[in-house]
Structures are given as structure tokens and as C-alpha cells.
């Protein structure tokens, strides 16, 4: 079932467009990742989906009903969606009362509140901190309390803004496991933002990549700012960070944003047109695919099936040539 459906969403701050999405569909029960660099519009999108900020333009429907961004209409919707900030803040009271806040707002009886709070604390493994002062907790503990505070409300959607950015490695995996568990057990739709592709791959059913406020099909790999110069005939010469030169079948000049599809890059033995020489620096497995990182002066990522990778016999440290065909390249104006 479609939970969110949005079209023509724009958010403009001080005349600058920070988010510009043609369409967006979020299905119930899935885990979505929003990937993208800083300033890509991830948090802005989360705040719109959390009904905390209205879009400047465009329409959103939630469970098939159009959302009206007036305070009275948003109030009931906010009770179905909870957003956890990148650096969550806890009220200066006990952990127990922090979790109790949302339940009190929903006018649940004290007995039921107590039962839910115990369950939520158990879910994130911090039952022993129930009566601890919330503002004296560590980063990892704070993140867990914020998660418990959200789970206790059994929302339909949980929006997490970089849920692991302010915690150590041990707590990062704990947070990821908790989110997985909640999604499986309670069927809560989770949308979270991250910079970490591996984390996104490990957790998400679907990944969306945002760049400069726009959704990109490139899934966050091989994004470069490049200079286009006039080439011969109907082509242009493209220089990526003054290291890699590519021939593009378009007549254009100036600075552009370049996306190179990691699944369309070929490995070849000899130099040729649109080729870059480099060294394999990393090989890893990612959801039944192999990710290869090649240092050509500019880092390129390749994605291929396990079978295809076995055929290449590539090892870390191997010197190879990458062929980047024109169809692997997308150009976006800056």
C-alpha cells in the first residue's frame, strides 16, 4: 500500500531551491534510505514527510488523502509519524518521563503507559536507565532513548535523520539492528538518511539518492564535478578533476555534474578511447554484488555480479584499464 505520494515538491529557502522532486512514492512496511552529500536536501525532505515543514510548492498525500499544511490538519498526522533528529535532544527529566511524554499527549491511561514504556526500554536494551536523568546519558544511550521514545508511540512511519552519525561503532550496529527488528516486528515504515552506502545497503529495501535537492538515478556512486570543453564535431571533452579525460557525445561547455553508472563501466586490458588507468584498491561484497573501487587519480566504483567478478580474477593492487562508455555517463547542469 502506498503511504506517501508526492508530486512537484519544492522547498525554497531565501530564494534558494533546496529540494526539487518531481515525484515520490513510499510504500508501507519498507525501509528506505535517503543517500546524499551534505546539503542534498535529505533533512528537508524528512521534515516535510514528518509534517513539520510545509513544502513551498507541490502536493503530498498520506494514505491516499491530500495533506493540507494547516496546523489543525497536521496535528492528527503528526501522531502517526515520528522523526528522530540527527542529534536527538531529550527533555531534562528522567528517561521514563521522556518516553512517557508522547503517550501522555495521546491520553493513554497510566497503567498502559507503564507497560508500553517497559516494552520500549526493553527493545533498545536500556531498562536499567529508566529513572536516570536523561541529560546525563552518553551519545549512544541518548540515541537509544530517542528510539525508545519513538517506538513507544507505535508510529506508522519512523523518520531517522542520520541515526548513527553521533554514536560509536558498537552503538551504530546496535541502532541498525534495532531499526531492522522494529521494521520486522511492528511493520513500521522506516525512512532514514545516511552518508554511508554500506549501511544503506545493509538495511534498506530501497535507496534513493539526493543531490542538490534533486533525486538522482545514479544511486550516489561516481558523482563528479567536471569541466566540459568543446571537442571535435558534435562531441565535448570532459575533464574530471584534471585527471581523467572523457569524450562526450554532447555539445556543451562549462561546469557540469557528472554521474557515471557503476554497472556500466567495463574492465579492459589495453588503453583506448574514454579509458582511465588505475589500481584496484578495494573489493567488497554488497547484497550479492561485488563492489570494486579503482584509483585512477579519481576514485571510480564498479558494481558487478559475483559470477562476472569471478571471471575477471581481479585482486586488490591489480593495475587495470577502465572503459567508460558514453551511455554510462549522465550530465546535469550546475
Amino acid at each position: 500500500m502506498t503511504l506517501y505520494s508526492a508530486s512537484g515538491i519544492k522547498k525554497i529557502y531565501n530564494g534558494k531551491t533546496v529540494l526539487d522532486l518531481n515525484s515520490l512514492e513510499i510504500e508501507q512496511g519498507n525501509i528506505y534510505t535517503l543517500l546524499g552529500p551534505n546539503g542534498a536536501g535529505k533533512t528537508t525532505l524528512l521534515r516535510i514527510l514528518a509534517f513539520l515543514d510545509p513544502p513551498t510548492k507541490g502536493t503530498i498525500s498520506f494514505r491516499g488523502k491530500d495533506v493540507r499544511f494547516s496546523e489543525t490538519s497536521l496535528q492528527p498526522l503528526r501522531k502517526k509519524v515520528v522523526m528522530i533528529n540527527q542529534r536527538p535532544i531529550l527533555f531534562t527529566t528522567t528517561v521514563y518521563k521522556n518516553i512517557e511524554f508522547g503517550l501522555k499527549v495521546r491520553k493513554l491511561p497510566p497503567k498502559k503507559r507503564e507497560h508500553i514504556i517497559k516494552e520500549a526500554l526493553g527493545m533498545v536494551g536500556i531498562q536499567h536507565l529508566a529513572h536516570a536523568p536523561a541529560h546525563r546519558l552518553s551519545g549512544g544511550e541518548t540515541q537509544r532513548v530517542a528510539l525508545a521514545r519513538a517506538f513507544a508511540l507505535s508510529p506508522e512511519v519512523l523518520l531517522c535523520d542520520e541515526p548513527t552519525s553521533s554514536v560509536d561503532l558498537e552503538n551504530q550496529s546496535a541502532v541498525i539492528n534495532i531499526l531492522k527488528q522494529v521494521n520486522e516486528q511492528k511493520q513500521i515504515t522506516i525512512i532514514f538518511t545516511t552518508h554511508d552506502r554500506l549501511q544503506a545497503a545493509a538495511l534498506a529495501t530501497r535507496t534513493m539518492f539526493l543531490d542538490h535537492g534533486k533525486q538522482s538515478a545514479a544511486a550516489g556512486e561516481n558523482i563528479f564535478t567536471a569541466d566540459l570543453k568543446e571537442g571535435t564535431g558534435d562531441s565535448s571533452l570532459c575533464m574530471i578533476q584534471n585527471m581523467v579525460e572523457l569524450n562526450m557525445p554532447v555539445r556543451k561547455t562549462g561546469k557540469v555534474r557528472l554521474f557515471v553508472d557503476p554497472e556500466k563501466i567495463n574492465i579492459i586490458n589495453k588503453p583506448g578511447k574514454n579509458c582511465a588507468h588505475g589500481k584496484v584498491v578495494q573489493v567488497s561484497e554488497e547484497k550479492e554484488r561485488i563492489r570494486i573501487t579503482v584509483d585512477t587519480g579519481v576514485f571510480f566504483t564498479l558494481l558487478m555480479t559475483v559470477e562476472k567478478y569471478r571471471g575477471t580474477n581481479l585482486l586488490v593492487g591489480d593495475q587495470i584499464y577502465l572503459h567508460i562508455p558514453p551511455e554510462a555517463i549522465q550530465v546535469q547542469d550546475i
Binding site: 533528529n85 527533555f91 511524554f101
Partner: peptide, 25 residues
């Protein structure tokens, strides 16, 4: 911190409840 206001709102608080959170802080 403005995050108190945002947190109260996302936890479902209405304007008065959000105001009370801020006064409390």
C-alpha cells in the same frame, strides 16, 4: 534549543503542549 520544540511537535504535542515543554526547559 529549537530541537525541544521540534521534538515535542513530532511526538504529537499541540501548540499549548509544545509551549509547556519550552517553558519547562
Amino acid at each position: 534549543d529549537d530541537r525541544y520544540r521540534k521534538t515535542a511537535m513530532t511526538l504529537g504535542a499541540n501548540r499549548l503542549q509544545t509551549a509547556m515543554v519550552i517553558i519547562r526547559e
